[in-house]
Write a protein that binds this DNA or RNA. Structure first.
Length: 1000
RNA sequence: GCCCGGGUGGUGAAAUGGUAUACACGAGGGACUUAAAAUCCCUUGCCGCAAGGCGUGCGGGUUCGACUCCCGCCCCGGGCACCA
């Protein structure tokens, strides 16, 4: 017999599990459970004590489930791309591939030294070409379906990391990685269309079992609010009124979709509108329709020619044939050839599809091309082609309905007539709107025809706010600033009143429409601004209606009430008025989200290259799937310059176009590493398959993930992205479920001994290797699980580990009969137990054991590992006391206890299990069941309270009635002492537990 | 400013309407030992000789009874941050 030697035992079992492939699962599970850890970034610091906390929890859970007969998929892999390896390369000149490989080796060794039951045959590495080939495939799938797109936009730029960042990676206006201030830069970048799933990402939260705090964080991040789009015509001090020619499309008419609404809105602005009904809308021919327009409509230098869908094609042809130039050409959902996304249309051969763009450009002074982002018929490149041919402005907007088929399309009106469109959650306060505010970046300010009188002042304000970093805006910007835009006024659509237009950076360009109607009486921010610049405050919602006078406001009133000073709506409740006022001005109710599309381009080297090629003649060309992976070249100078390092690799950068063969270049940005980690859980089941990213059958067998464990810091990063990718892949037909992770648990942070977050600079980092070496993996696992509630942050204490080690040594002693230094068995005098009691106290200890089974089983299911361990300790202490008395624990009870302990400390339990004569591993042994009849106590211990204070206990059998218990209680000396000379007012009896006697 | 989590012995913590402090660390005492370590036993919220009183951040409330529920505050931690 030996002393407990953790080094020997742990090495032995770890080796055996690996050699025997104990934890490899089959591809065809009978009863599946997918238990997943967030895979680590293999940093050069090695494992941190925070890692094993989550890994121990999933390991306990996996082992527990295996003992319940589940086939548990429990894999591990490496989130291996990322900045630290690259930064290290810059500093030390070691290639990131080399560092990463070394770090992975180290991580694997460390993780294996903890005896986790991973299926190592499914290990994945996101930086391997076998993996990132499929990350690139994912990008291409998204690209093909309009979920990946490139656009020029103001983006977050970290000048120290020399790369752009996603919104989710900006914290307090600073870079998440290096804390450098983030500035705004206008760059063309790749985005994933997360916003398409905003609503679903929000509502599906109710289907998953996640911590409420994470759900709430995601909810807030998605930031849905319901409001109205309202349009304010602009009144310019001079300038002629345009007259409009509106052309409908295939199967359309001037009475269809948005045309009546649009016509009315333009006429309200005192413009003339011609909206001809084009001949044969269901069998349109070019000649007939174009001639019809030329014959029936009049054109002059103030004409704005508008065409929707096929009407846009007619408009182009009309513009080509005009004799005099017109003011403007506006095309919505237009196209240049008859290739549609959905079906063929019958006018393919009745139009010529040849355009004289020079002539058209000569005949129109300006042009606007509007693409609809969810267009079901017109592919996005049509808008781009039109723009290439015509110039002017090309804008992709969200229509009310795909392909601008809503009955009201505010986006169109906005571009047809000078208009400010606002999003407001308070359309009920429209009568109180006394001024407008545009964000400094608002497109309207770029329009020359506005004839802004203080252009210089306005431009200066725009410039200064553009220069401000996010952080500056945050820190020195409680005080609002702004400049009035002189020379234009907005018209309040209900009062007809002309109100001033301001620009101010308290309005954010990227939210809503980038413009607001300011209602200072009912919005705190507008109120502060109005006070500063002496703008009128008009109260229109009063909480005291119908009081004759409303209170004078010294702050904004944002609560509910009834409308006052609001024309026909006066007296209506403000909630009702929201819809009523919106309708009366032709506005639309709309949901708005704070969520932005996910910016995935990174100007860095150590990531998956974006598989796009730019060809001089074909433009943007996706790399054909057969050419994947686009390999990351090794011969690269990684120094960050702000330009992607890949651009400087000649072998990588210059290529030939896969479509036409002419010279082209590759996209040189790489993908955000979060793209790699947004789908890795789909890969594990098919980890070794080279021909597909994930195999159908495997997906059906194993997914979705049943239990997912990791840190809460990913609440709006990884966890949101993975949900998005899952939904997108479902819509592309690859998956049949909508949520990737059914249950989620977050481990709490392990703090340093000083109670602060562990960090190198604080010097409070604990190295798990030393702990494992000194105390053993089992002790380490047990300690991390015993520290406190799994989800709470808790400070590390090396001194406390000894308690866990003592517990395991006690287990060892109890099972191996290795004597303590006690020379022989001595019965402690105080207990008064007779020496002839040599039998296991079956009755009492069996009860305790069965209570322990119940407690441990329930606690593991609820991730309450700390109390489960404490229950195991209580049970063992009782066993050990028996052993102290020289009494043997019967084999059945000994085995049961080992099985309960096994998920927590697998090495020592396997060893003791085999020493007890079991040939098979206990990893798949059925989990013990408890006997409910054994758990019941046969006598009740009733607490007796007097006036709610505990005074006495009575021990009494179950069959005694309440009445008799009260009687018995009142006869007790201790009770009498309190009831003497008092009257019993009432008694409260809790069966089996407590009796409260109320006296006065 | 808004949202979330938390505040219980010397320490990590347990108890989610019914005996406050299970389990563990630390501390003190004892047994064993030439001695130490290990082990085993006892004690360990505060005041008090005791009877008893007080006690879960603070102040109120609901209740026969509150760490637990409600209202108002204070402090600590985390997240969001001019989102119309």
């Amino acid at each position: 017999m030996h002393m407990y030697n953790h080094r020997e035992i742990e090495k032995k079992w770890q080796k055996r599990w690996l050699n025997d492939k104990t934890f490899q699962v089959s591809d065809r599970p009978k009863k599946k459970y997918y238990c997943l850890d967030m895979f680590p970034y293999p940093s050069s610091n090695g494992l941190h004590v925070g890692h094993p906390e989550g890994y121990a929890a999933t390991d306990i859970f996996s082992r527990f489930l295996r003992m319940h007969g589940y086939d548990v998929l429990h894999p591990m892999g490496w989130d291996a791309f990322g900045l630290p390896a690259e930064n290290y390369a810059i500093k030390k000149g070691v290639h990131p591939r080399e560092t990463t490989e070394k770090n992975i080796e180290n991580f694997r060794k460390q993780i294996q030294s903890l005896g986790f039951s991973y299926d190592w045959s499914r290990e994945i590495n996101t930086a391997s070409p076998e993996y990132y080939k499929w990350t690139q495939w994912l990008f291409l799938e998204f690209y093909k379906h309009g979920l990946a797109y490139k656009k020029k936009a103001p983006v977050n730029w970290c000048d120290s990391c020399k790369t752009v960042l996603a919104n989710e990676q900006v914290q307090d206006g600073s870079c998440e990685r290096c804390s450098n201030a983030v500035i705004q830069k206008e760059l063309a970048q790749w985005f994933f269309k997360v916003t398409k799933y905003a609503e679903e990402l929000l509502t599906d939260l109710s289907d998953i079992e996640w911590p409420d705090s994470i759900k709430r964080t995601q909810q807030n991040w998605i930031g849905r609010s319901e409001g109205a789009l309202l349009q304010f015509p602009l009144a310019m001090t001079d300038g002629a009124k345009p007259n409009y020619v509106l052309l409908h499309g295939y199967l359309g008419s001037p009475d269809g979709i948005f045309f009546p609404w649009l016509k009315q809105a333009l006429e309200k602005r005192a413009c003339t509108v011609q909206a001809p009904s084009l001949p044969h809308p269901s069998h349109p021919t070019e000649k007939e329709q174009v001639d019809y327009v030329l014959r029936h409509c009049t054109f002059d230098e103030n004409t704005v020619l508008f065409g929707h869908s096929l009407g846009a094609v007619v408009a182009l042809k009309v513009a080509e044939k005009l004799e005099r130039p017109i003011s403007k050409l506006i095309l919505a959902g237009g196209f240049l050839d008859a290739h549609f996304r959905d079906t063929e249309r019958p006018f393919t051969n009745t139009f010529s599809w040849k355009f004289d763009f020079e002539k058209i450009k000569k005949n129109v002074r300006g042009g606007i091309i509007l693409s609809e982002e969810n267009d079901y018929a017109i592919p996005p490149e049509q808008g781009r082609k039109l723009h290439d041919a015509l110039g002017g402005t090309h804008i992709t907007v969200a229509g009310q309905e795909p392909h601008f088929t809503g009955t009201r399309e505010p986006a169109l009106l906005e571009h047809l007539a000078p208009t400010i469109t606002v999003f407001t959650t308070r359309p009920d306060t429209l009568y109180g709107a006394t001024y407008m505010v545009l964000a400094p970046e608002h497109l309207l300010l770029k329009k020359k025809e506005l004839r802004i009188k203080n252009q210089e002042e306005v431009q200066e304000y725009i410039n200064t706010s553009a220069k401000k970093s996010e952080r500056e805006r945050l820190h020195l910007e409680r005080e609002k600033t702004g400049v009035e835009v002189k020379g234009i006024k907005a018209i309040n659509p209900v009062t007809g009143e002309k109100i001033p237009v301001w620009i101010a950076d308290y309005v954010i360009a990227s939210y809503g429409t980038g413009a607001i109607m300011a209602v200072p009486a009912h919005d705190a921010r507008d109120f502060a601004f109005a006070k500063k610049y002496a703008l009128p405050v008009r109260m229109v919602v009063c909480p005291h209606y119908p009081a004759p006078t409303c209170p004078v406001l010294d702050e904004a009133y944002e609560g509910a009430g009834h409308l006052v000073e609001s024309g026909p709506f006066t007296g209506m409740s403000n909630e009702e008025a929201k819809q009523a006022i919106t309708d009366s001005v032709g506005g639309v109710i709309r949901q708005n989200y704070k969520l932005r599309d996910w910016l995935i381009s990174r100007q860095r080297y150590w990531g998956a290259p974006i598989p796009i090629i730019y060809c001089e003649s074909c433009g943007e060309v996706p790399v054909p799937e057969v050419d994947l992976p686009v390999l990351l070249p090794d011969d690269v100078d990684f120094r960050p310059t702000g330009e992607s390092p890949l651009k400087r690799s000649g072998t990588f950068h210059s290529v030939t176009c896969p479509k036409c063969g002419s010279s082209a270049c590759r996209e040189s940005d790489t993908m955000d590493t979060f793209v790699c980690s947004s789908w890795y859980f789909l890969r594990y089941p098919s980890a070794t398959q080279a021909d597909v990213p994930f195999e159908d059958e495997q997906i059906r067998s194993w997914l979705p993930v049943d239990m997912y464990v990791g840190g809460a810091e990913h609440a709006v990063l990884h966890l949101l992205y993975a949900r998005f990718v899952t939904k997108a892949l479902r819509d592309l037909g690859y998956l049949s479920f909508s949520e990737p992770f059914l249950r989620l648990r977050n481990q709490g942070l392990i703090l340093g001994e000083d109670g602060e977050k562990m960090s190198k600079s604080r010097g409070n980092v604990v190295n798990p290797d030393e702990i494992i070496n000194a105390y053993g993996a089992d002790t380490m696992r047990l300690y991390e699980m015993f520290m406190g509630p799994f989800e709470d942050a808790k400070p590390w204490s090396t001194a406390s580990i000894i308690g866990m080690r003592r517990f395991l040594e006690k287990v060892w002693r109890t099972y191996t009969a290795i004597p303590t230094n006690y020379p022989n068995i001595v019965i402690p005098a105080k207990t008064g137990i007779q020496t002839h009691v040599k039998d296991f106290d079956t009755e009492h200890l069996n009860k305790l054991l069965h209570k322990t089974i119940k407690k441990v089983t329930e606690d593991i299911q609820e991730f309450k590992f700390n109390t489960a361990i404490s229950a195991l300790m209580v049970c063992l202490n009782a066993f050990a006391r028996e052993r102290e008395k020289g009494i043997d624990i019967p084999a059945q009870q000994r085995d049961t206890f080992l099985l309960l302990l096994a998920p927590f400390t697998p090495h020592i339990t396997e060893e003791l299990w085999s020493m007890s004569g079991h040939a098979e591993s206990l990893a798949f042994h059925p989990w013990p069941k408890y006997d409910p009849t054994l758990i019941k106590e046969d006598v009740m211990n009733i607490t007796v309270q007097i006036n709610g204070k505990m005074r006495d206990h009575i021990i009494i059998s179950h069959d005694v009635s309440e009445e008799n218990i009260i009687k018995a209680a009142l006869e007790r000396e201790t009770v009498k002492k309190w009831t003497q000379g008092k009257k019993v007012v009432r008694t409260v009896f809790v069966p089996g537990k407590l009796l409260n006697i109320v006296v006065s």
